[in-house]
Amino acid sequence: MARRKKNGDEGSIWLVIAVVTLLLVPIALAIGRIYFGRKVGNTCARLEGGENCFALSEDESIELKYKKAELHRITNLLRAAMQRGADASLAVNKDGSFSARSNLGKSIRALVGKYEPLQASLASDVDELGELPLARWESFRSAVRQQGACEWGLWAWAVAFVGFYGYGWTRTEGPTVWGSLLFAGLLAALAYVVGYFAWAQKARQLVPAMNASMATD
């Protein structure tokens, strides 16, 4: 008896979780539709005004140019230091660094220790800035898909709830609100998933060809 009661309690808990989840579906879809709709609307308004929303700003372009130049300078500096060590036939440790038994070796090791972290940091910054236009494009494309998916989900929820609830009036026991909500929530979740994939190419229709070409290069 105790085991049956425990299993029954666990089943009730999972049922409550399922009910709450499905009831929250339309609320989540409505919030998502508003949030992503505003995000897409703002971007589209800027695009219609002739602004390239995905390209680097003037400050970002200047920063990228500066960091590329610094990366080039430091890379050449490190390469020259390593070449000096090789020309001097300095002993090489197992980790690839020069031995510190000579003054030249100590000097090169100090220079490498100082500039290698900076080189790695600059390389990371250059990559991040270079990929920023594509990242912005992908963010916009994702927002378009989310907006469309949430809209499909909301329509599915409304149609399913009204239809299922209306069908209840034709039965002797009358309409079931909870059953209608659960059925509508389940169908809305399914419509959201289908809509997300169906809107995969919609973003390309909302941007000028120049921006789309730039974003996919």
Score class of each variant (00 low, 15 high):
Ile62Leu: 02
Ile62Thr: 10
Lys67Ile: 09
Lys68Glu: 04
Ala69Asp: 07
His72Gln: 14
His72Glu: 13
Arg73Asp: 14
Ile74Asn: 00
Thr75Phe: 15
Leu77Gly: 01
Leu77Gln: 06
Leu78Gln: 06
Arg79Met: 04
Met82Glu: 09
Met82Gly: 14
Gln83Ala: 05
Arg84Asn: 05
Ala86Lys: 08
Asp87His: 04
Ser89Cys: 05
Ala91Pro: 03
Gly96Ile: 07
Gly96Gln: 04
Arg101Leu: 05
Arg101Met: 08
Gly105Thr: 04
Lys106Arg: 15
Ser107Lys: 14
Arg109Ile: 09
Ala110Glu: 15
Leu111Gly: 12
Leu111His: 05
Val112Leu: 02
Tyr115Val: 09
Pro117Asn: 02
Pro117Ala: 06
Leu122Glu: 01
Ala123Thr: 07
Val126His: 06
Gly130His: 06
Gly130Phe: 01
Glu131Phe: 05
Glu131Ile: 00
Leu132Gln: 11
Leu132Tyr: 07
Leu132His: 05
Leu132Ala: 14
Pro133Leu: 05
Leu134Pro: 00
Leu134Tyr: 06
Leu134Glu: 13
Ala135Gln: 10
Ala135Ser: 06
Arg136Asp: 06
Trp137Met: 07
Phe140Pro: 10
Ala143His: 14
Gly148Asn: 11
Ala149Arg: 03
Ala149Lys: 11
Trp152Gly: 09
Trp152Gln: 05
Gly153His: 05
Leu154Asp: 05
Trp157Val: 06
Ala158Leu: 12
Ala160Lys: 04
Phe161Val: 10
Val162Trp: 08
Gly163Glu: 08
Phe164Tyr: 15
Tyr165Gly: 09
Trp169Cys: 10
Trp169Pro: 12
Thr170Lys: 02
Thr172Lys: 15
Thr172Leu: 09
Thr172Phe: 12
